[in-house]
Design a protein around this nucleic acid. Sequence first.
DNA 1: CAGCATCCTGAGCGATACTG
DNA 2: CAGTATCGCTCAGGATGCTG
Lengths: 122, 122
Amino acid sequence: MDTDGELRIDAPHRELLDQVLDKWSLAVLNELCERPCRFNELRRAIPAVTQKSLTATLRRLERNGMIEREVVSTRPVAIRYQITPLGKTMRQPIDVLLAWASEHMPAIERARDAFDTRAPRH
Amino acid sequence: MDTDGELRIDAPHRELLDQVLDKWSLAVLNELCERPCRFNELRRAIPAVTQKSLTATLRRLERNGMIEREVVSTRPVAIRYQITPLGKTMRQPIDVLLAWASEHMPAIERARDAFDTRAPRH
DNA sequence: CAGCATCCTGAGCGATACTG
DNA sequence: CAGTATCGCTCAGGATGCTG
C-alpha cells in the first residue's frame, strides 16, 4: 500500500504546496467549492482574514490556476471569484488531508499533552 | 465521492496542518519513513536545512507524536530519530498530495505563465 | 464594492559561538 | 555528536487610511 518509499519533495513541489496550502487558501477554496463568491462575501465567510491577506491569497490562487476572477460590469463593479476545473482537482487531496487530521487529532493531542507534561524543560 | 461540501478548516485543523506540513517536515518524514536516522544523517540527507531549523522541526514532529527521539547511550551519545505508527499514518495523505502536485504541475505552470504574461500590473 | 498604499510589529531563519 | 544560546535581519501579515 505504502510499501514503496518514493516521496518526492523537491523545491518546485515545496513551493507549490506552500502556495496552495497556506494559511487562508484552504478556507477560500472551501468556500469557492460551494459557490462563486464576491470579495466581501469571502470576508464574511472567513471572518478572521484581513483584506490584505485575502487579496494576496486570491491573487496567488488565481495565478496558480485554482480560481478565476471575473469582473461583472454592474454598477459599481462586482467581482466574482469562482473555482476552476483545475482548482476542483485539489478537492480530493484536501479531503484526504482533513480526514486524516480529524481521525488522528485525538491521538495527536494526547501526544502533545504527554510531551508537554513530561518535557523536562531541563 | 466528494459530492458533499463539508470541508472543515477550523483553527485546530489549521494549526495541526501548519505543524506537520511546514517547510522541512515533509522532507524529514520522508527520510524517517525510509529508516531511522541520527541528527547529522538528516542534515546530510536534507542539505538545505540549517541545524536550528532541523532541531525545531524534529521537536515539533516529536511533540505531535509523529516521530520518536531515542538516546542511545554509546560514547558519545547517539540520538536516534524514528517514525512512530502515528507518523506512518501521514504517509497516505502526503502521497495523495504529492501525486496531485506531480500530476497537475504542468497545468499549474501553464496557468502561472499565462497569468504573468497577461498580468496588466494595473 | 473591491481593492491599493503605507506603516509597523514580531515570528522565523541564518550565522556564529559555545557545551556535555 | 547533538545540540543550546544569542544576535540580527528579513518579510509575512495586521492595522489603518485612501480610491475609482
